[in-house]
Design a protein around this nucleic acid. Structure first.
Lengths: 225, 225
DNA sequence: ACCTGAACACCGTTCAAGT
DNA sequence: ACCTGAACACCGTTCAAGT
């Protein structure tokens, strides 16, 4: 995690360049396209060259996740009510993940293994403690809360395919057609929701009410004080 | 989806056996262990034999997801308030997923492509409509709700590794040690929550309040009527 | 410190062929 | 209808070697 390279500029730059390339590649073509060999090729280097910078592929994925997590711009701790502060934190998480819906899922298993992720987790745990949660309850809630927030981004309707491409349009059309062809007797609600289920019309509203949902959920399971 | 095999017993049996084996294998060793070649070997058959039953590997994953989704035992539609009925549906989803925490994630992208998943989605959409949600809002909420419910299972602390194994114990110990070694000045809340963050002490309580959380979230974003 | 070359043990998948 | 054999184009990774 904490890198202690002495004259690090060359190494860290190189490493960062690879990580940037990997994220950009995943954004454009999905995580499956992120391959040691493909990245090597993109950088005009032999696949084995990457193994000097990363012990194994998983280390590269860790670095990608940490990059996204460190993009989270935590609000300065204020004195507002706990739920307003929680909302601000979750909004910051969403903002960092939104540009990378195809990569965000990597953070799910890595929050507690990166400095930036730990900072977010600590903040959320602190807020929940302030709201009256005991340690056990706060841990479970914080864990689920962070997962859900990231998933708000990864599960946005129509965002499974790379952004803005024709491929995405085709996928949405196809899915919509499939839903439209279902039996109206069996799945009436699905059919009338076919359009909304396949594409998000108003992203700001989607993420806004998503965060509202999560804050309300916390309020709902908050111990009565 | 809808299979129309004439004298199907032999084929469907064979196919089901493979799917069962794949789920059991994933439960025991994780999804990465589910490989065409490994399954073929387990069934004493050539890898290419599987390609008669599944057009490609993804079809096998689809079938695994559909199996889990069809394990959902939807409650008979009642006349209770919408939130009680929603709670019952979500509880049924959790119950179906809990035995397969390492497989449940497969359902996330496949709900709307399986009969069983469509039935659940239709039910949830109907409940949200009854609660006063318009189509757009209901779709986004239902989508997120199902994702979150599945994730309640896949993200349970300590359940990332196969169940009950020594490997799992080792992973938990390791993670706990890592968290305990952090700087108390920077991550005070994480450190004091190290135990709770790495293992779920009371699963019933965890899933119970998880479902409560989600129902409360829906209540929180429900349009005022 | 940083990279290459050759090799290994895996993948999913195609295609022609068998029964 | 169901399965095999041989082959292809990919993976991640190791190890010894170069500069």
């Amino acid at each position: 995690m904490v890198k202690s390279t002495r004259s690090g500029t060359r190494e860290r730059l190189r490493r960062d360049v690879v990580v940037n390339g990997a994220i950009a590649l995943a954004d454009a073509e999905g995580l499956d396209a992120v391959t040691i060999r493909r990245l090597a090729q993109d950088h005009g280097v032999t696949p084995m060259a990457l193994y000097w910078h990363f012990r194994e592929k998983n280390d590269l994925l860790d670095a990608m996740a940490e990059r996204l997590l460190s993009d989270i711009d935590l609000p300065t701790p204020g004195t507002e009510p706990w739920d307003d502060r929680l909302r601000a934190v979750l909004t910051a998480v969403v903002a960092a993940m939104r540009p990378h819906p195809l990569v965000a899922g990597l953070t799910l298993t890595r929050v507690l293994r990166s400095d930036a992720g730990l900072a977010v987790a600590d903040r959320v745990l602190g807020l929940l403690a302030a709201a009256g949660f005991d340690t056990e309850h706060a841990s479970q809630t914080a864990n689920f809360l962070l997962f859900s927030t990231v998933m708000l981004v990864t599960s946005e309707p129509g965002r499974h395919a790379p952004n803005g491409t024709e491929e995405r349009e085709a996928l949405i059309r196809e899915k919509r057609a499939m839903l439209g062809a279902l039996s109206p007797a069996r799945y009436p609600h699905v059919i009338s929701a076919a359009v909304a289920l396949t594409e998000c019309r108003d992203e700001e509203r989607y993420f806004g009410t998503g965060v509202d949902f999560l804050v309300a959920g916390v309020r709902g399971v908050r111990p009565t004080v």
